[in-house]
Amino acid sequence: MVKIFVGGLRPDVSELDLVMFISLRAQVNTIKVVRDKITKRCKGYAFLEMTSQAEAEKAVALLNGEEYQGQVLNIKISEEVAPPPKIKTNHTYQKKRPRI
């Protein structure tokens, strides 16, 4: 699966409308519209998982710069960001005895 970033979305965009618009041009596997936790309005972007690298490239070629609901879309293949490494510590902290 390959993720693509879709920017330039309206605050009232719906997942169904967006996936229907994009799936007419390329195969979409999953969609995640990023929303504000309080207002539930779209923050202006979404991430879509495409079925293959070829489908992701096709979506970028066909849709980047196109107009959707009066907004110009910014679409690009999302770079995978590796999570930060977990730091293991083997330290055990013991209380020091008070000196007499």
Score class of each variant (00 low, 15 high):
93 Y>G: 01
100 I>H: 10
57 E>V: 05
42 C>F: 01
94 Q>L: 12
59 A>S: 08
99 R>N: 13
48 L>T: 04
62 L>G: 05
98 P>S: 15
42 C>N: 02
25 R>T: 12
79 E>G: 04
100 I>V: 12
25 R>A: 10
50 M>H: 03
48 L>R: 08
70 G>S: 02
81 V>A: 09
65 G>D: 09
9 L>R: 03
83 P>N: 11
10 R>V: 11
3 K>W: 08
13 V>F: 01
52 S>L: 05
70 G>C: 07
79 E>D: 12
91 H>G: 07
74 N>G: 13
39 T>Q: 00
13 V>L: 00
70 G>E: 03
66 E>Q: 15
48 L>K: 07
86 K>C: 01
42 C>K: 00
28 V>T: 08
73 L>K: 06
100 I>M: 10
23 S>Q: 03
71 Q>S: 04
27 Q>K: 14
100 I>S: 12
31 I>C: 15
67 E>R: 13
38 I>E: 15
89 T>K: 05
90 N>M: 12
36 D>T: 01
92 T>N: 06
15 E>Y: 00
45 Y>F: 15
15 E>F: 00
96 K>A: 07
39 T>A: 04
77 I>Q: 09
40 K>G: 01
67 E>H: 07
40 K>P: 01
13 V>E: 00
100 I>F: 11
20 M>F: 09
75 I>Y: 05
93 Y>S: 07
96 K>F: 01
75 I>G: 02
85 P>H: 08
71 Q>E: 11
5 F>S: 05
79 E>Q: 14
68 Y>N: 08
9 L>C: 05
84 P>Y: 06
77 I>T: 13
38 I>K: 15
5 F>I: 05
9 L>W: 06
5 F>L: 11
25 R>C: 09
79 E>Y: 00
17 D>R: 05
41 R>Q: 04
45 Y>G: 05
5 F>A: 04
40 K>W: 07
23 S>G: 01
94 Q>I: 10
16 L>P: 03
10 R>A: 10
7 G>I: 00
1 M>N: 11
87 I>T: 14
55 E>Q: 14
45 Y>C: 09
94 Q>P: 04
9 L>Q: 08
56 A>T: 06
